[in-house]
Amino acid sequence: MKLLVPIKRVPDPATTIQVRPDGTGIVTDNIKWVINPFDEIAIEEALRIKERLGSGEVVLVTIGEKSWQEQLRTGLAMGADRAILVVNDKPLDTLAIARVLAKVVADEKPDLVIMGKQAIDDDSNQVGQMLAELLGWPQATFASKVEISDSVCTVVREVDGGLETVQFPLPAVITTDLRLNEPRYASLPGIMKARKKEIKEIPVENLGLDLAPKLKIKALKAPPKRQAGRKVSSVQELVHLLHTEAKVI
């Protein structure tokens, strides 16, 4: 079974993000870049599926600058077999990303695409769904459990207020939720082997796709600073203020 795992490079979740003064983006100096944590879960799940089946290939793909190969290398160190870097330095919106991935899927013909439900930088939560639509494949988003047998896939999804179990044939697109698994560490032999694994670079221009953005980010703003709280002297005063000032009761 061939498993394709699209990954995105994002700032380390522990980083304090600052918006550029002109509001066009974030300050990227001194940012530590990591694999989007949801994508890391997707890599782990792909590796587990391959291990359970006893054979298969896990292929990573990302769309970004040449330096993004660092994150691909991390995924290869976890155990993925090879990687594809679609080299691009222009801004792409979610539909453009989904189109590039659809092209990679057409070339690679994986049995399953498994990716994070969203990237923690822009929190769009769109690419997986768009990709499934472009491919005309079944999709299962927010997966918290994945089982595969005889090209039938069963996924438990995290939905509001509970869990939903869906079943569908392969090929398909799955997007991963937080509780699906705990990603492994890169082992030392894994790190050493990763050096020799292939990262194929494809210039985005060579794909011949219309990637003109349909979506434009107009401005980014940091959330307002939280105001200090206020102490009240009695329950009566609290109730009074909630009623007259905050108008919530």
């Binding site: 660092e70 991390t74 890169a186 030392l188 790190i191 050096r195």
Partner: peptide, 10 residues
């Protein structure tokens, strides 16, 4: 250098 960073990350 990348290997070094991967070991540190581990």
């Amino acid at each position: 250098l990348q290997e070094r960073e991967l070991i540190r990350e581990f």
